[in-house]
Write a protein that binds this DNA or RNA. Structure first.
Lengths: 208, 208
DNA sequence: AAGTAAAACTTACGCCGCTAGTTTAATCAT
DNA sequence: ATGATTAAACTAGCGGCGTAAGTTTTACTT
């Protein structure tokens, strides 16, 4: 086949197929040949639409970030906005955990990533936080959200019970797997509460 | 060469060389052939000492975790111990950032990882925290430490100034790179303060 | 109508993790 | 002491990887 009458590929179709593949089978399963096969095409054809595989992965990551709702930042005071955004971000990443390692590297040049940083940082600065402090808060939020999404804490322990003979306090670790959602959510929400309440106290302390 | 009089390889030598390579050039640079070359040997020879490459990577990760000081947990009250441990853990990861993606997946079956979990969880439970809450706190600490070590926040932004024309609040983002250590440290310490102070308040609240 | 650009293709290079089978030395059992 | 087994290196090779190069055909531009 040479150039077809109707193009077989578009950037959108490629990103969608790549996202589906990553969600279903993980980042390691995303190879150029495999992705091309899903699209009914030979591997190198993808290079007519993206310069490198990394650009495809980046586009997948940004498509996920695009799903995060940023509208709260114009509508609510910073503490509620921050909480609401962090929960939504966390929820989106929970649905697409396999792409999180990419997001954890920062926004780079990705438009949705930069737009999100702009919204968060802008809201904090506009609310009266000093820019340096707002940067810290933004960083901290990324640490919590990506740290929690990067790998389930509860599923991070091997489930072989014999493994824990020498770690007496951990004897229930294999049982964590059964409740991993509740454990991970509990930890994330605890962290979010502590951070936002603490920040609020600091903020009001400097105001008065 | 067949079997030499003195074995060329040991697990320790392999892990040390792999760790050096990962530290110097990143996880992607660690290939079986490359590592073998560093050790003056052919690639498949490594399989006489480790069943898979993943086991080598795991051993590198555990060697890093082994460096974290756990002695504080027997010596100080839980808030100081938690802070001191988290700072030490954070410091160790700062020196070996390339292995963090592995640690972020949890301890799995790695002995030093499990010993660390045992120490943290045990100290919290022994101090009076309910086990479920202690689990949340342990998870939260991992989120913060690995989240912050996984990728510098300050270096996560592209330094091309033109990129920020459409993100007015971020116009100073390219300057973050110059102070990335201070920014990242500031965010981590802010988070640690907020979490531990908040936990302390909760703990004393339930005691009274 | 001619010229150019786009989008598919095939081929190929140098990497990758790992398996299989071979050789030789060291160690263990009788 | 010797014979058998195990250990630790080797070579050869499989299937997969990202991607560069060059080819063909179609579509768009002038």
């Amino acid at each position: 086949m040479a150039r077809p009458k109707q193009a077989l590929l578009t950037r959108e179709r490629i990103v969608a197929a790549a996202g589906t593949l990553v969600d279903a089978e993980g980042l390691e399963a995303l190879s150029v040949r495999r992705l091309a096969a899903e699209l009914g095409v030979q591997g190198p054809s993808l290079y007519n639409h993206f310069p490198t595989k990394a650009d495809i992965v980046d586009a997948v990551a940004d498509a996920v970030v695009e799903q995060v709702d940023l509208s709260v930042f114009g509508e609510k005071p910073w503490p509620e906005a921050l909480r609401s955004w962090a929960q939504d971000y966390h929820g989106v990443l929970t649905e697409h955990p396999n792409i999180v390692p990419v997001l954890a590297q920062g926004p780079g040049r990705r438009p949705a990533g930069l737009a999100m940083a702009e919204a968060v940082f802008g809201a904090l600065v506009d609310a009266g936080w000093p820019p340096a402090r707002a940067t810290h808060i933004g960083a901290l939020m990324r640490y919590l959200v990506t740290g929690s999404a990067l790998g389930s804490f509860a599923l991070g322990f091997d489930i072989d019970p014999d493994l824990y003979d020498r770690y007496p306090h951990l004897h229930n670790a294999p049982r964590l797997a059964a409740h991993h959602q509740a454990v991970d959510e509990g930890a994330f929400n605890l962290g979010l509460d502590l951070l936002i309440n603490g920040l609020l106290a600091q903020f009001e302390g400097t105001r008065r």
